[in-house]
């Protein structure tokens, strides 16, 4: 049975890694292991190194709209802390919101706000990491723009813990958006929906496309407007939970299309240009033009992984994939 280490400080984590150095032990960085519980782990490591006790907000510069937080914090508490200062991190994960920040950022990234805000990686400015030999390094900067040296932050993000243990991340924040409106429509004829994007652009010469298709999460903490018609908050949430797919549009949904959507969609989130509908098949049909939102690491070894890991660690104890689906 693997050990579970959950250091409460950077020093402790460094010490743990130094101790295992040269012992040819495998360490698997993780958060609360929400995804591992779902998908399993390909190879059992000797130890799990969890960031779940590293949950501090290290600093907060509201005027600069940046902050640095340790990665063990879960997304819900992070956004709650930020909302208190009328700010928000522009990422809404399709994964379980109770997972850690590190878990979100070190796995293949995705967010409901991708089309308007970019990927989660675009909202991260830098961070602090511990290499396998216990060395602590900082990458990136705390300012919103820096091209000094190589962009190791991005290299390490998405590395699924193969290269380093992430301690904290510097986040770029946005003002908390105004209320989001939910509209609800009947759900018949859903499969014909994706055509509208293309048809519309042909007919009107006015571009209108769908950027991504995502699954509905167990849902996000957003203020729901009282203006959302007769639907109560509870029933709206219920509808969203029932729906299986949603299309995220990169630009505001034109009014003409809204009418058409009434016939097909389960719900439309105008502020975030998102439409929810019931059948998942659409996502598959339009893979060519649209991307499927939920990507699970394939487990295929990345060609540069070995060399990068060697160069990063220069020791024999190897970091492992953050999470792999059982074959």
């Amino acid at each position: 049975m693997a050990d579970l280490w959950a250091p409460a400080s950077i020093e402790e984590a460094q010490e743990l890694l130094r101790q295992t150095r040269d012992k040819d032990r495998t360490v698997l960085p993780c958060g609360r292991r929400t995804r591992m519980k779902r998908h399993g782990v390909l190879e059992q490591p000797n130890s799990f190194l969890s960031a779940e006790n590293l949950t501090q907000v290290l600093w907060f510069d509201a005027e600069d709209r940046t902050c640095e937080v340790q990665v063990g914090i879960d997304l819900i508490s992070l956004q709650q802390t930020l909302h208190e200062r009328r700010l928000e991190w522009g990422v809404c994960s399709p994964q379980d919101q109770s997972g850690t920040l590190g878990g979100l950022c070190l796995a293949p990234d995705h967010s409901f706000f991708t089309s308007s805000m970019g990927f989660p990686r675009d909202q991260i400015l830098g961070g602090q990491w511990i290499l396998a030999d216990g060395t602590s390094i900082r990458t990136g900067a705390r300012v919103v723009k820096s091209v000094a040296g190589y962009d190791l932050t991005r290299l390490l993000l998405g590395s699924q813990g193969q290269l380093a243990f992430c301690v904290s991340l510097v986040l770029k924040l946005r003002p908390q958006p105004p209320r989001i409106f939910w509209y609800q429509f009947p759900a018949e004829n859903a499969p014909s929906l994706p055509h509208f994007g293309i048809r519309h652009s042909e007919q009107q010469g006015n571009l209108f496309t769908c950027g991504s298709i995502e699954r509905i999460p167990a849902f996000a903490s957003h203020e729901i407007s009282p203006e959302c018609g007769e639907q109560s908050l509870a029933s709206l949430q219920e509808e969203f939970q029932k729906s299986t797919s949603r299309v995220h549009f990169p630009s505001p949904i034109p009014e003409e299309l809204l009418e058409t959507l009434q016939a097909d969609a389960l719900a439309v989130d105008i502020a975030n240009h998102t439409v929810a509908f019931q059948q998942e098949s659409m996502a598959i049909t339009y893979q060519g033009k649209w991307q499927s939102g939920l990507r699970i690491p394939s487990g295929k070894p990345f060609p540069w992984a070995g060399e990068l890991a060697k160069s990063m660690t220069q020791t024999s104890n190897t970091f492992h994939l953050f999470s792999k689906r059982m074959p």
Binding site: D109, Y150, D151, T153, R154, W304, A305
Partner: peptide, 23 residues
Amino acid sequence: VEDWGTPSGVQDGFDLRGFFAGS
């Protein structure tokens, strides 16, 4: 020759695409 990143931008592994930018 290497292909880095994916046509949709979703990264599936190390972000060498991001590493390349500004190199």
